[in-house]
């Protein structure tokens, strides 16, 4: 299991290849990548991601451990960036390895649902019209209820 909270960009291909290597008994690997999305009517100059150093790593580790306890997983990878990003840049990725695809897919969804509203990150969108904190949505919170 590897958790990385970093400001530097990551190489999706390299991370995926490294994660896949050495798992002879895992038949399924799922990866999800989050990208900074531009605003449709108000072009974004940057997205700033603030986090709570110390708690962030602990919270993500707890979420990954819950995923391991709940699904039959061989391995988990979570990379989440902070700092200033521009549209099109990769914010984060998760990868899950399991013997079968159902566990790998479900665990990746579980990780994403929890990272969204239980990992201490806050996003701020900066555009020509100003800067605004991204608000959490009811759907984000509701997504946890199904687990």
């Amino acid at each position: 299991m590897r958790i990385s909270v970093q400001d530097a960009p990551f190489d999706l291909g390299q991370e995926s290849a490294d994660f896949a290597a050495g798992h002879r008994d895992m038949g399924a690997i799922v990866t999800f990548t989050g990208i900074v999305r531009d605003l449709p009517d108000d072009p974004m100059e940057a997205m700033e991601i603030e986090h709570y150093p110390g708690m962030t790593e602990k919270a993500i580790t707890q979420i990954a451990e819950q995923a391991r306890a709940r699904f039959s997983l061989g391995d988990v990878l979570v990379i989440h960036r902070f700092g200033k990003l521009v549209p099109g840049e990769m914010i984060m990725m998760v990868a899950t390895a399991a013997r079968h695809r159902k566990d790998a897919f479900e665990a990746a969804t579980f990780l994403m649902d929890y990272l969204k509203s239980r990992a201490p990150f806050w996003k701020r969108e900066i555009s020509a019209s100003g800067a605004a904190w991204v608000a959490a949505t009811d759907e984000d919170e509701d997504a946890l209820a199904r687990w």
Partner: peptide, 10 residues
Amino acid sequence: VAFFPPMTGG
């Protein structure tokens, strides 16, 4: 003690 708005990770 930390105070913050609802988190928006992912």
